[in-house]
Amino acid sequence: MIQLHNVSKLYPPDNTGVRDIGFQVEDGEFVFLCGPSGAGKTTLLRLLFRSEPVTEGQVIVNGRNITRLKGKGLAAFRRRLGLVFQDFKLIPHMNALENVSLAADVTGVSWRQSRRKAFALLSELGLKDRYGALPPALSGGEQQRVAIARALVNDPELVLADEPTGNLDPEMAEETMRLFARIQRRGTTVLIATHDYRLLRRFEGRVLMMRQGRLVGEQYTAGAAASP
């Protein structure tokens, strides 16, 4: 699903985002990107959804070199991704349902279809009664789930989530992580950046360790909390 070859991202004059990264993620894998603040997790994710160009190296997603993607091709590529951001990135004047269906609307499915899908997902995420609320009126956990619902509305083949539990209390964080595990078991590849090592080792998956822009290790977690 993902292949990185000698990927570096430098911010002139002297900041290093990531340096000389190479790894591979198979279809349907559950992968954590773990490391302290400033390790380059966000930078790496941004390279994966082509928010920025690499300085060096190649990023291949689903057999496609996305290093030089732009315009129409980039938009089409992103429509097949599910992105969850640390700061949610919800549109404040659109209610939960509209925020979720937005991602479906842009693919051109019918208005009806996108609403139905959005509503079903919000219900599954326990927001059945909150779908009409605007983001500012939702709690952090609720907003988080809206953002996750939006990431899933187009049945993405790859989910990229940046610190999706960063602002949540431990209970909510674990709940959210379980949800990602469920999605992964349905066959979606999931890549989650987090510095919460204690949380992730309760789930079954592969951990890529980062430090100062470099990949410094790799391990597998057995997972205790993965099954409810």
């Binding site: 959804f49 938009a75 089409a76 429509r79 097949r80 990135k89 919800l90 549109i91 937005l102 842009v106």
Partner: peptide
């Protein structure tokens, strides 16, 4: 601006 960025991130076509 924020909304435009989000639209781009969810892959909205340029024209839209």
């Amino acid at each position: 601006q924020d909304e435009i960025e989000i639209m781009q991130l969810v892959g909205a076509p340029d024209g839209l």
